[in-house]
Amino acid sequence: MKKILVLGATSAIAEAACRLWAKRGDALFVVARNEERLRAIAADLKVRGAADVHVAVMDLDDIGLHDSAVREAARVLGGLDLAFIAHGTLGDQTACTRDFSLALRELNTNAIGVMSWLTHLGNLFESQGGGTIAVISSVAGDRGRQSNYVYGAAKGAVTIFMQGMRQRLYKAGVNVVTIKPGFVDTPMTASFKKGVLWTSPGVVAAAIDRAISRGSCEVYVPSFWWLIMTVIKAIPERLFRRASL
């Protein structure tokens, strides 16, 4: 039985991952803002076989609450084997261009808040001397593109922040896993037209679980995104600036 803290447990990918862990009989501490949905998900995880499910309703952007929330989860579960950060928003890039306060909100949720969680979790896991911290970043963080560079900048910042933490915590036996999903069919992407590159939260969740158990560092999900992003990153800026991606 693993003891798992999930932040943003109402996200479709997090819910799918929690279902895998619940089926295995793990104990979960799930955190999210939408109470109605979080309670339904917690009940579901219990029916599916979770050893225990604890619920905390909070605004994950509220940095002042992070330290106590992390301690509370560790206390209730009796330590943590895994912390999974899955919350995020995909803002309207065009609106962010016109109004920086919107961009700031996106950056707070997707980057600053996550870094705060990572800091508290990193310290806890370091003192425990083991465990795994997994975070959903994005392929969008690999290169800035006009269509979503606010989101991309936030995810890119998280990816780099985690690279540093990974080195630092390696000595303590703590693994830090960066997940970079491509296009996933979730409520966050409900308005997008879906094509062959799209995948389901269930597929992404299974890949996340695999990456965690293997002790991977950075993974693209599905793995073909590694190839796509390698090609995209190799395009010189001089050419890339003309592209309409």
Binding site: A12, A40, I41, A43, D44, V47
Partner: peptide, 16 residues
């Protein structure tokens, strides 16, 4: 599609 949670199972009666 997102209203897909199982909420309670009574193993005595098999009631889901």
């Amino acid at each position: 599609r997102y209203l897909d949670q199982m909420l309670e199972f009574d193993a005595g009666q098999g009631l889901l």
